[in-house]
Computed example of a mutant assay.
Amino acid sequence: MTPTNSPPGHDRQAIPPSIWLADTMTGTDLTIGGRRVWLHMLLDSISATPLGHRWDHLGGGDGAVAVLRSALAAYPVPHTIHMDFGAAYTSAYAMICGRHGIRLVRSRDPRLLLERIFGRIQRQFVQSLGRVSDSVTDIEHLNQLFAEWLDFYPDRLQT
């Protein structure tokens, strides 16, 4: 499983260590192979820059952990990650954060920014797939389409 990083147009070094927001978008009707897919995402709380994202079948923490590892490899380590109480944030996620000295905060408040962004993804990206969803045959293809959507619309997620 290869996580997808943020659009190449974003300067990775321009994002100072800060607070990241982590969440999983589960409310879509997207399915591949008859199985529902979910979007795991990490976002910088100040710039609203997507630091990592991954569509996946898995409901557990594998996708979220893969996105975290990818973002940590590409960006300065944040001081804090805010997340909700979802199942995607497993002990493996907490262990990785602990090794990097990242404070984990479980909360519902910081999700407001991500929920707005997830709403945009739902209205703009997911709905645009309605015409071609039958031609999206695997997760990698869906991730490629999403990365292209972010590349083409680099400011689309900004609030």
Rank of each mutant, 00 (worst) to 15 (best):
D29L: 12
H53S: 05
G59A: 13
G34F: 09
T49Y: 13
G63S: 12
L42N: 03
G52L: 10
T31C: 14
A71D: 02
V37K: 04
V65T: 06
G59W: 04
D44P: 01
G63K: 13
P50H: 08
A48S: 13
I32Q: 08
A48T: 07
R54H: 12
A71H: 01
V65C: 03
G34T: 02
R35F: 03
L42A: 10
L39A: 00
D44G: 02
S47L: 05
I46G: 02
A71F: 00
R36K: 15
H57F: 14
L51F: 03
R36M: 03
R69V: 06
H53L: 04
G60P: 04
G60M: 02
W55S: 04
I32E: 11
G34C: 11
L58S: 15
M41W: 02
H53F: 14
V37P: 12
H40A: 13
L68I: 06
S45H: 06
L30P: 10
G63F: 09
S47Q: 05
R69M: 02
R69K: 15
R35K: 15
A48P: 00
D44S: 00
W38T: 06
G59T: 15
P50S: 10
S47K: 12
R35V: 10
T49K: 08
L39V: 06
L30Q: 04
W38K: 11
R36I: 05
A71W: 01
V67L: 04
A71T: 06
L42V: 10
A71I: 05
S45E: 14
G63Y: 03
M41D: 01
D62H: 12
S47T: 14
S45M: 03
P50F: 10
R36G: 01
H40Q: 09
R54A: 07
V37M: 11
L39F: 07
D56C: 09
G60W: 08
G34Y: 07
D29G: 13
T49Q: 10
W55I: 04
D62N: 12
S47I: 00
R54E: 11
G63I: 05
G61T: 04
A48N: 11
W55L: 10
T49E: 09
S45N: 12
G61V: 04
L58K: 05
D56Y: 05
D44T: 03
G61Y: 07
G61S: 10
L58H: 14
L42P: 01
V37T: 13
A66H: 03
L58I: 02
G61L: 08
W38F: 15
G52N: 09
L43V: 07
G63R: 04
